[in-house]
Design a protein around this nucleic acid. Structure first.
Length: 270
DNA sequence: CGTATTTGACCCGCGC
DNA sequence: GCGCGGGTCAAATACG
């Protein structure tokens, strides 16, 4: 999508004494409000579309995986046991194997009952070699391990926001690009609110700053799991923040706003 | 002193 | 059955 550039500059060449100044600024303000509303709607629509796409793709992937598993399982069983499954059911004399073996059933059961797993890629500064990813939740590290396929250590975290929360995450630097942290989330949070996104949170010490992290989050659309609503709202919040920052940084905008406000005040007094 | 982090030991599943 | 590797535990240590 082509980036939308907002022209926040205001035409200030109007004579301040002019009686039309207020009206012009009012119109400009209205225009900006409309633009803001339009962008918010676009963003909401974009997020909704993403959610729908994500869900359909995930379902397709699940189905594909299960079918693949079944095929492989059938093949293996045919090779090994020739049509006797471990439920003690001997198949009919036609020699056909049962489509549901214990193996595939177990796999399917495991798959369907397994906790949600999602993968998030976070780009960090090259100099930042910590394995802490600020995602709004409070995590407690319980282990670190160097794996065979990747020389950089993998850190294991548990959600410490609620004692009963089953969510875990693994953080490891990408093999291809060491500046990218691959974060794998397992399970779903059983508590409502995130914390630490703004307040920083006790115990979340050597972390990336929230805005910088959120701003550089790269979601892998193909591999990732569910895109949490919380993340969605974070991004919306971030974009709104960005817009507000760019507006307040614009000297033309602040001057125009100041003029309009002072004009209103003076007008009201008279 | 309480809490978080580190790190070596241990457990367990999987492939051969 | 054995070895390997990933995941977890828990004692030691660091830190505020």
């Amino acid at each position: 999508m082509e980036p939308t550039c907002l022209d926040t500059s205001l035409n200030l060449n109007v004579d301040p004494s002019s009686v039309h100044t207020d009206m012009v600024l009012e119109e400009e303000l209205q225009r900006l409000r409309r633009e803001n509303k339009r962008l918010t709607e676009m963003l909401t629509h974009l997020c909704d579309s993403y959610m729908v796409l994500q869900k359909t793709q995930l379902t397709q992937l699940k189905n594909a995986n299960f079918e693949q598993d079944q095929l492989e399982s059938r093949k293996r069983k045919a090779e090994n046991e020739c049509c006797t499954n471990k439920f003690g059911v001997v198949n009919n004399n036609s020699g056909e194997c049962s489509s549901i073996t214990e193996d595939s059933f177990k796999r399917y059961k495991d798959f369907s009952s397994s906790p949600k797993v999602s993968k998030v890629l976070v780009k960090t500064e090259a100099s930042n070699n910590s394995l802490y990813v600020m995602d709004g939740y409070q995590w407690r590290k319980y282990g670190q391990k160097v794996t065979r396929d990747n020389p950089s250590p993998r850190a294991y975290f548990r959600c410490s926001f609620a004692p009963s929360c089953p969510v875990k995450k693994k953080v490891q630097r990408s093999l291809e690009d060491p500046t990218i942290l691959v974060t794998t989330y397992e399970g779903e949070h059983n508590h409502g609110n995130k914390r630490g996104e703004i307040e920083g949170g006790k115990g979340s010490s050597p972390v990336c700053s929230p805005t910088a992290t959120i701003g550089s989050v790269t979601l892998d659309l193909v591999k990732s799991g569910l895109f949490e609503t919380a993340q969605k709202s974070s991004i919306q919040q971030f974009l709104v923040q960005q817009m507000a920052t760019s507006l307040t940084r614009d000297p033309n905008f602040t001057t125009a706003l100041a003029t309009a406000i002072s004009g209103k005040i003076l007008h009201a007094k008279w």
